Simulated assay, not measured.
Amino acid sequence: MLRKKILAVGAAAMLAMGLAACGNSDTGDKAADDGKIVLGFSQVGAESGWRTANTISIKESATKAGIELKFDDAQQKQENQIKAIRNFIQQKVDVIAFSPVVESGWDTVLKEAKDAKIPVILTDRAVDSQDTSLYKTFIGSDFVKEGKLAGEWLVKETAAATGPVNIVELQGTTGSAPANDRKKGFADAIAGSPNLKVIASQTGDFTRAGGKAVMEQFLKANPKIDVLFAHNDDMGLGALEAITAAGKVPGKDIKIITIDAVKDGMQALADGKFNFIAECSPLLGPQLMDLVKRVKAGETIPTRILTEEGTFTPEQAKAALPTRAY
């Protein structure tokens, strides 16, 4: 009798375990296939006001679009981004998007994503891979055009100058697409004006602190500087501090041209401390989420999608600032 009771209890326990296991299995399958798109995104870092606005745009847009976002901050290190992308592959996300720290050195990890059948979208910055099948599309700005617009403004502004115009350049992160392209665009634009001379060019790594430190060096080494071309607003704002500390008037003694048009930069422009800004919008989130959905659905999309942007003078900055979103 006791043996029968033990067998009965054991059978009941096994049945309960079986039911529980079935229940867990159903829940797991449903959670794994709930129809929600999972996006793995690796950000460059938080080196500037532009980048912070870009991150906010991506996070808010993912929430609004109903996309699950796995976000990683690479802290401006390529090795961190490669590690993040491999983690996304292991997690079997639906789509990977990232803003490359530098242009080169991505083929191996992108091939791993391709082999895992996970599509990749490049945002803001491009890569120099010859195999364009490793990513679906690029969404962002035309950095060469931004540099060209900055140079064209300077050519017009200095058209009446009779002597040499000495320019110093604060470059972005060495090897990054915006640094390479903005430098090229600017150089191409001023090439036809032999009196415009870049007398010093060095990276400030897209940071305000970097811009200030390098500008201090420029001012010590070059007694006559007429123009500063900074690859982004933050470096320009740091340089502005160095120029003021040196007893010079920014915007007058040294004309300042920057790229981005974030709020702090636009305020400096409205105040007459900057002279010209070429825009580079960080608000890529809505377009990115739309692309993620289209890529997941297997749609054919263009390999390059450019954002629409403009330029600003001091008066235009004053008009735009009250409604500026970043």
Rank of each mutant, 00 (worst) to 15 (best):
L2R: 05
K30W: 10
K212I: 00
S129N: 09
I6C: 03
I257D: 01
A62V: 00
K111V: 12
K248Y: 03
S201A: 09
T27F: 15
Y135E: 09
G35I: 06
I56Q: 11
L15H: 01
E169A: 04
L237E: 01
T27G: 01
I121F: 14
T52C: 10
A187T: 15
D124N: 15
T313K: 08
A46E: 13
A191I: 06
T27N: 12
Q316K: 15
A21C: 13
A116E: 06
F218D: 07
L39I: 01
A32S: 05
K5E: 08
P314N: 07
V93I: 10
L39Y: 06
D290E: 15
K184S: 11
L19A: 14
V127I: 11
L291W: 03
G28R: 12
G18Q: 07
V95M: 14
S25F: 14
K224A: 00
E47L: 06
A46R: 04
A13T: 15
K252M: 05
H231C: 10
I259F: 04
E309R: 13
A191Q: 13
A317E: 04
S48T: 05
K296M: 01
N87H: 07
Q76E: 15
A16Q: 01
K30T: 02
S281D: 13
V102Q: 09
Q78V: 15
G163T: 08
D253Y: 07
L110N: 09
E146R: 12
M1H: 06
L228R: 11
R294G: 08
L306S: 11
L283H: 09
K70T: 08
G151C: 06
L283F: 03
A317K: 05
F143L: 07
E308R: 05
K111N: 11
V95R: 11
T207E: 00
F41T: 00
D124M: 10
A189T: 08
G18K: 12
T63I: 14
T108S: 08
I167F: 11
P223L: 12
R182S: 03
A268K: 06
L69E: 01
I225H: 13
A84F: 10
E103R: 14
D234N: 04
E309C: 02
F186T: 07
G238C: 01
I257V: 05
V214A: 01
T162R: 08
Q75G: 03
V249Y: 12
A213R: 02
D26C: 07
E68K: 15
D124C: 09
N166H: 15
S193L: 02
A46P: 07
D124V: 11
F218N: 04
I67A: 12
F218R: 13
G185P: 06
F229T: 10
G23W: 14
K197D: 02
T162L: 01
R208Q: 07
G147R: 13
